[in-house]
Each structure stands twice: as C-alpha cells, then as structure tokens.
C-alpha cells in the first residue's frame, strides 16, 4: 500500500472514515439549519406586531403611518400582486413562445444565440434592471403616456423581462423532455409541425411549463431592487396602471435603514407575509410537479 491512509492500522483508518462521513453529514445539514433559523427568527420578529394590531387589520388596512403607529399593508399587498400579475400577463406568453421557439422552431445557431441572450438576461443584477428602468422606461412613460412615470406599468415592463429567463429555461426543458414518439406519432398521422406543438408537445409538457411560470411569479413577487427604483413607492391605492405603487419588498428596503421599535417589527411582519406567500407558491409547484405522474 502506498497511500497514506493505507499505512495506518485498520482501526485508525476506519475511525478516520467515520469522522469524515460525520463531517460530510454535518455540512449537508447546514441548509436544513438555515431554513429553520430563517423561519424561527423571521416569525419571532414578525409575530408580536401581528398579535398587537391583528393579522386581519395588518393585511386589510390601507393606512401605513409608522410615526402614528398605524400599520396596514393593504396598498402594498395590492401593489405586489398587481405588478406581479402584470409582469406575468406578458412575460408568461412571451416566455412560453420563446421556449417553443428554442425547443422546436429555431435553427441551431439561432438557438445558441437566443439561449446565450436569455442566460445573460438572467445574470444581469436586478439593481441594473431597476436603474435602466429609472433612466429609460420611467421618463418614456412620463413623456408619452402621462402621469409621474414612476408607475405600475414601469414595474410590469421591467419585471416581465426579468422573469423571462426562468420561464423560458424551465419550459424549454419540459418541452424537450416530451418523448420523441409522441411527436413522431403525431407527424405520422398527418398533423403539421405547428399542430403537433400546440396539441401534443405543449399539453404533454404543461406541468413543467406551469412550474416555470409559478417560479417566475415567485421571482417577481420577491424582487426588490428593480421594483423600488421604478414604481414610485407611494402608499396609496392605485387607480390606473400609470399610478405609483409600493410593493411589500420595497417597503422593507426603503424603511429598514431607519426603522426602530414597532416600526421595525412591522417591516419584519411584512417580510413574513411575503415569505408565507412564496412558501404557498412553492408548495403549489411541487404538488403540480408530483401530479405529472
């Protein structure tokens, strides 16, 4: 035996192996510990205020006035939902179209080019998207469509672009994973390529596509920096897509710097509501993935 471990007595070597196995087990438990700590600390900071003002009041009151001790995030719940759904309304169809394009229609060289572009879009930091929105999209809306420019629409445009990579990549993989026989069978029966895509490939891949869209939705609702720079952050109920709104994420990043006491606890409660939202969405994805069978 020339190896180091081999030179030692068998017992020492076995002990050494067991120690390493134990260490590796410990490293793999770190993510479990991390999730547990996040839940414990987030809820420990968020629950007291919810107990004080009441969960229902916190979620449904439109008045956010920390200096007077009034904590209601209804306007921000609406803000987060409207911006997210708006982004999905155009990001999801475009993302699906791109996934079909990449999986079925594009010539290899175009596929490589677009895939590269999509990966790059995924890599650009969210604060850069926000900055681009601030200097290009906000002034454009202000000059062409009216209003302050800082608006739901600006958030919807930026977020729609940001969630594309998630939706495109996951949907494309789902479409590519559909067994070849399905496609060949359909074509052999005389269906056109497009009919095969719409009636066979997309329906077969629907749970994967759905997962991509829901993950994109999770990314949109959790996005902070891109949104805070372009939506104006006003805590008033919006009355058009040109109105400014504040999202739950923006609320935290805007006020965390100086908040204290109940105000700070209210920001943690906001983060907690967001966390619960995301968890519910993730559970939806995993159950959708499981029903694929």
């Amino acid at each position: 035996m020339t190896t180091q471990g081999g030179g030692r007595p068998a017992q020492v070597r076995a002990a050494h192996e067991r120690l390493v196995a134990l260490l590796l087990l410990a490293t793999s438990l770190v993510s479990v510990l991390a999730i547990a700590l996040i839940i414990v600390f987030l809820f420990a900071k968020g629950m007291p205020l919810l107990g004080k003002v009441g969960v229902w009041h916190f979620l449904t009151s439109p008045t956010w006035n920390p200096t007077r001790g009034e904590f209601g995030i209804a306007t921000m719940l609406v803000g987060s939902l409207v911006v997210t759904l708006g982004a999905l309304a155009w990001g999801a169809p475009l993302g699906l179209a791109l996934a079909i394009f990449l999986a079925e229609l594009a010539p290899p060289r175009v596929t490589a080019g677009i895939s590269w572009a999509v990966d790059l879009l995924a890599g650009i930091p969210s604060v850069v998207y926000g900055f681009f929105g601030l200097v290009v999209i906000v002034p454009f809306i202000r000059e062409r469509l009216g209003g302050p420019g800082f608006s739901i629409l600006a958030g919807v445009i930026i977020l729609g672009i940001m969630i594309l990579p998630t939706i495109v990549n996951i949907s494309r993989d789902a479409i590519r994973a559909v067994p070849r026989d399905y496609k060949e069978g359909s074509l052999a029966l005389g269906a056109t390529h497009w009919q095969t895509i719409v009636r066979i490939l997309v329906p077969s891949a629907r749970s994967g596509i759905l997962a991509g869209i829901v993950l994109g939705m999770g990314r949109a609702i959790g996005e902070t920096m891109a949104v805070v720079l372009v939506t104006g952050n006003v805590t008033r109920m919006p009355d058009s897509i040109l109105s400014p709104v504040r999202t739950m994420t923006s609320n935290v990043v805007l006020e965390m710097g100086y908040a204290s006491g109940d105000h700070q606890l209210a920001l943690f409660a906001t983060g907690m509501v967001l966390f619960v939202f995301i968890v519910v969405m993730n559970v939806m994805v995993s159950s959708a993935m499981r029903t694929r069978g």
Binding site: S31, L37, I38, T224, G271, L274, F275, V279
Partner: peptide, 14 residues
Amino acid sequence: EALAGIPSIVFGLF
C-alpha cells in the same frame, strides 16, 4: 430547494 426560492429581501431581514 426552499432556500433557493426565498427572496433576497427576506435573507436581508434574517
């Protein structure tokens, strides 16, 4: 997987 889905602002709070 759950860790990957948590928004960065929640990591910030934690």
